[in-house]
Amino acid sequence: MALNRRRVAAAFLATALALGAQAQEKSIVVASTTSTEQSGLFGHILPAFAKSTGIAVRVVALGTGQALDVGRRGDADVVFVHDRAAEDRFVAEGYGVDRRDVMYNDFVLIGPKSDPAKVAGGRDVAAALKAIAAARAPFVSRGDKSGTHAAELRYFKDAGVDPGEGKGSWYRETGSGMGPALNTASSMNAYVLADRGTWLAFRNRGELRIVVEGDTRMFNPYGVILVNPAKHPHVKQAEGRAFMDWIVAAEGQAAIAGYKVGGEQLFFPDAKR
């Protein structure tokens, strides 16, 4: 019995130690979007950053809206997102400082090969959405206040369509990330707006393919913002700034440009110097 108790105590201690043995390294938390994380971009560029600065970047991938919320609460040091209007609000409200342009990628409209709304090959996203609504063809929306969701709602507005009217019939809000939304669209042969990076990395395509691309409105700019240290004093300001400086400088920009999936470049650096 006493032996048992000692054994349990030893196991307890060992586990506690193993848990505490987290390597003590310099690190920052970056709240970012599923599109950047799932496309594999961070996996490609962060090792280079860690190598040149010794700072590990811990990426929490969420929708843009959630990522900004995490920043608002002070749970991240840097946010790295793509919804310009929301970003500007974040800075104006005093939650973030020093916003910088980093890169852009583009959105693509995805749809089934059968193309019930007859939109394939077009370049006008608003016209395509209008046709989809008119045909009452199934459309999957992220519905999660992400940057992609915000862009989709902008395009519907441009098309003069209120997707809320199609709720419960052709317009399906999944309330999920890009990947799950693509999985849903794939299983029900629906149209869906996606960022090109996630689409290229996505494996479960089924009947889906790109139907509309190249509309200038579908360019999707990313920015980095430091969480305001005046509001959240624990923010790792120096390390956070080091990351922001690096990603907009030549080395970071080259790393972004160098990331390719299937030979295709996903993100286009556009930091202004």
Binding site: Q38, M178, G179, N183, A201, N204
Partner: peptide, 9 residues
């Protein structure tokens, strides 16, 4: 969950 959402079933 991540791999599922990436479609890598």
């Amino acid at each position: 969950a991540l791999e599922t959402s990436k479609g890598d079933l």
